[in-house]
Design a protein around this nucleic acid. Sequence first.
RNA 1: AGGCGCGUAGCUCAGUUGGUUAGAGCGCUACCUUGACAUGGUAGAGGUCGUUGGUUCGAUUCCAAUCGCGCCUACCA
Length: 967
Amino acid sequence: MTDSMEKTYDPHAIEQRWYQTWEEHGYFAPQGRGSAVGDRMSGTAAPQGSSYCIMIPPPNVTGSLHMGHGFNNTIMDTLIRFHRMKGDKTLWQPGSDHAGIATQMVVERQLGAEGKTRHDLGREKFIERIWEWRGESGGNITNQLRRLGSSLDWAHERFTMDDGLSEAVKEVFVRLYEEGLIYRGKRLVNWDPKLHTAVSDLEVLSEEENGSMWHMRYPLSNGQGQLVVATTRPETLLGDCAVAVNPNDERYRHMIGELLELPLTGRKIPIIADEEHVDPEFGTGCVKITPAHDFNDYAVWQRHRDEITISEQIHGGLINIFTIDAAIRDNEEEEGGLIPADYIGMDRYAARKQVVADLEAAGLLEKIDDHKLMVPRGDRSGAVIEPYLTDQWYVKIAPLAKPAIEAVEKGDIKFVPDNWKNTYYEWMRNIQDWCISRQIWWGHRIPAWYDDEGNVYVGRSEDEVRQKHGLPADYPISQDEDVLDTWFSSALWPFSTLGWPEETERLKDFYPTNVLVTGFDIIFFWVARMIMMGLKFMDDVPFKEVYVHGLVRDSHGDKMSKSKGNVLDPIDLIDGIELEPLVEKRTRGMMQPQLAKKIEQQTRKDFPDGIPSFGTDALRFTFAALATTGRDVKFDMGRIEGYRNFCNKLWNATRYVMMNVEGQDLAIGAPRTGYSEPVAEIDRSLADRWILSRLQKTKQAVNNAIQGYRFDHAAQAIYEFTWNEYCDWYLELSKPILNSDATTEANKRGTRRTLIRVLENLLRLTHPIMPFITEEIWQRVAPIAGVGGETIMHQPFPSMRQSLVNEEAEQEMAWVMQFILGIRKIKGEMNISPGKPVPVLLANTSDTDREWVTLHRPFLDFLARTESIAVLPEGDEEPESATALVGEMKILIPLSGLIDKDTEIKRLEKEIGKLSGKVQRIGGKLANPNFVDKAPAAVVDKERGKLVDAEKALANLQVQLEKIRIL
RNA sequence: AGGCGCGUAGCUCAGUUGGUUAGAGCGCUACCUUGACAUGGUAGAGGUCGUUGGUUCGAUUCCAAUCGCGCCUACCA
């Protein structure tokens, strides 16, 4: 079998194959393991009957995998595999989101390429077309998730638009409506003039942009002067209904109640007083009020309706000046033609220019200042959002928010890291009603019907509505054209995917789920809304913990974006990609083609040879290692390369073990479940006892780390144990035992047994983070280690076995290591080839030293490459030598020819310098009565001990230095 | 304006009740094709822990201020 293991680990050869096997065998389905099978090498049993569940944050069907997914899913899969191995009945629920606006835009773009719009097709055909498209490419993202090794329960994959989830959406809508928690109303909303739909507050992103502040003169009707108003949006003058001043402002107080001539319109508008909105210090202290196109002005209008309405020409006080495209509309019908004909049909920005020009011509423009302002844009379209007056559906949020806040306050839901709860509270306590209707076609149609008289009927279906309200079959009613915000269905995800409103077994087993793993960017969009809906409809939290991770950025800390050309595709890191395709990929379909050249140059510079293939396991290990709590991740190519090397290290360690163990006597009987007692006599060496002890501590560390969401610590513990202890020391220490005629068969059996079993444990310990390589190796190793089982996935996760923790062995081994390191150090610093055997003399030895030297002589000889080791008899003169200390024992390597005297003097001086610094520091500390009196006794004792050791070592080296100098 | 977070080796990051000479990986230097692995081995250089104060016997760690960076929320027309 060993000959089938290539010298270098090749992830391609195994990854897809194993994933297919796992999926085909149904290993991802929840099953749980009874307590009959205990944990090998731990003796503890898995708790029976506990379930563990994570809901995947459903990716958009339009989507393709990005680094955020890679990170997010690595964490979830690690947790899922960990709990599955622990024996929990474990479900990772897969699915995808219909992503209303995003998906509709993709298909509209396709239509656009054919020179058509969705209106050419009509609603029904357009939706058909989207379903078609979903059928073609909806599997894209799920296949990419498979590439990551994600052990999702695919047999129960859900989609937010499938029948079951659509039922859940209707049910929730109807129930909330019947409780008065959903209502319809006409108010200002965020209107996207490009997409022709309302969007929620969250879907609006404001960014600072350069603009101007126009100062415009509004003459008083009585001819007694003018007011100057300052605005960033002069075109909205056409919809002005008043000018507000602060009632405490001496400059204008006497004018309150007067009328102004609104330029260009021939209208008169009142001067009103509003203390809340008007800051006398800002601008001119006069604010034009355009209630139909500004949220603050709308609020002012609500406070001053009567005063504004008395103005003879204004009826109701609200003048909508825009079409759904944000062009100036003709309002002849509704408001009696208050908008001058000259502007009608102009786009808002054209109208702005025209208004400014006309004011200028009329001498009514005082000045234009440069001004920075926050411009609201739609997160999908990028269009400047317009406050716009329309009929929409809303969720009354306060009654839902209250219990959702309490759930976190009470600790029913915990955020990890904890501080995210502050962000959550901040938002939940200031939350506004949620606008849930969207004027698009792709999504859940609002279950409301209207008759010709404008009556609204809400129900699960048209039949239900007719029945409930006694409407005859021929009574004409029609369903609301709008669809629901995508996040409305996402909010139900934790229970709708489990079968709600049916009372299913899955719902019983897995709700509430255990943890939600997500980036902070969707705490508001999604997390908060799931909590509200879960509490409302399941009467319990949707998850007990929320693990919030950071964003994946490039190695400089920049956000990855197409326009920066710094996007890494996880699949490219797994498979590798040549330079040319990478350049092509990064520069294709740019929004700003002028950037392409720069991106190409940068890419050629950063990846002159393209990206090598690292494999999924290396990528996952990198994500785990970088998963520090609550911090963004700077993705560093150096790290993934290092972890690819780590895979190779593990692979080659296995090759070594197999080479020494296959066909040999290991004192292991036939494969069975769980470890068996040795079937022949074994004798465990110091190295065996030591590595077993270290393994136990590593298991403990990894368990603690994963349970505490410290995947970085888990990865580090595994890495260090594997590389620095198992490979660097233990495998080397096994060589003199296995290759010597002087060691006994029992000794060899003990070592072989330990080699294979530690490896087998290590594989299980590593499996949640690196599923593929561990499965591949485990399949070879397990039978030899005496372990049966179809897959490592369903093996017990290792936990610490106290009886194998061995502090004495660790101490004794520390002595061996120090011995070897001392000699290596001398060789290194003396430029003696590491392989060159040197004679070694020991002075100042204790009984233990002498015992251990005899006992562990094979280790010392082999790893330190000694020619001879002799204990210098008491009283004998020490030859001129290079020196290292092991405790108080002196290791001497005689100078004869090998070693340069001056170099050794320098070495010693350096060591002495270090030591005397230490002695001074600790001495000073202990001389300080404050320290000795006030510090805990244990700390003081520890310092005393350190001082004694350091002083002895120092004296030792000083004597040595003198000796060498004299020679 | 309010809130949160970050600043530790050239780079990417650990450092969890304040107490070893502050650690790891990558990079760097020197040496080594040793029978698992050059995607390797051995040895080494490199840090006044952003700055200034304070608490303390003792501060990278706690407190205050300050500088720099990032994010989020709300905004003045």
